[in-house]
């Protein structure tokens, strides 16, 4: 994802924008495999609070990450209206639970603004840049840190709650 920011000015990239609560976010469309409706997930024991569980994606076991909870916002109570964005992160497929998918937007890489220096760790971890579109602000999300790595697995849940504070 960091590549997007580093690309030459003038390059155009396509992004998929989605909504969590009252905020808008977007990810590189190349990382998105498909978009599907919410199906009940099988919860995993001893999983961080932002891992909703796993679902069956045509025979593969797909973990679902509640992106709102992951970024320290309120835990989502998923309903039929919620959406799963199936993304590919490194060699793994991960489903991101979001409120709704908005749009496909095409922007020039040059128009991506640097994230302002905030004290918030969540912003530093996940937000790689900001886009101004028709008076709205859309945050460009980096997917690299969405899944908990093995090192922080034990404290995964705590990390999320600390970030929320």
């Amino acid at each position: 994802m960091e590549d997007i920011v580093q690309r030459k000015t003038g390059d155009r990239i396509e992004l998929i924008s989605f909504r969590i609560g009252d905020q808008e976010f977007c990810v590189d469309i190349m990382a998105v495999r498909e978009i599907r409706g919410w199906t009940p997930a099988t919860s995993l024991p001893q999983a961080p609070s932002f891992v909703k569980g796993v679902i069956n994606l045509r025979g593969a076991v797909l973990p679902i990450v509640d992106l709102a909870a992951r970024m320290g916002m309120a835990v989502t109570e998923p309903s039929e209206r919620h959406v799963i964005i199936v993304t590919r992160i490194c060699d793994q497929q991960v489903g991101l639970l979001v409120d709704a998918v908005c749009d496909i937007i095409t922007v020039e890489t040059g128009s991506i603004q640097q994230t302002p220096d905030l004290a918030c760790d969540v912003v530093k971890t996940f937000v790689k840049g900001l886009l101004a579109m028709e008076g709205r602000m859309i945050s460009l999300i980096s997917l690299d840190n969405v899944l908990p790595t093995l090192e922080i697995e034990a404290s995964g849940a705590e990390t999320a709650s600390i970030l929320a504070a």
């Binding site: 024991p45 001893q46 796993v54 076991v61 793994q92 899944l147």
Partner: peptide
Amino acid sequence: IKSLEANYRPVPGI
């Protein structure tokens, strides 16, 4: 049998 590790990671007890 389907792997959990393929897309996630090992889960204790599972």
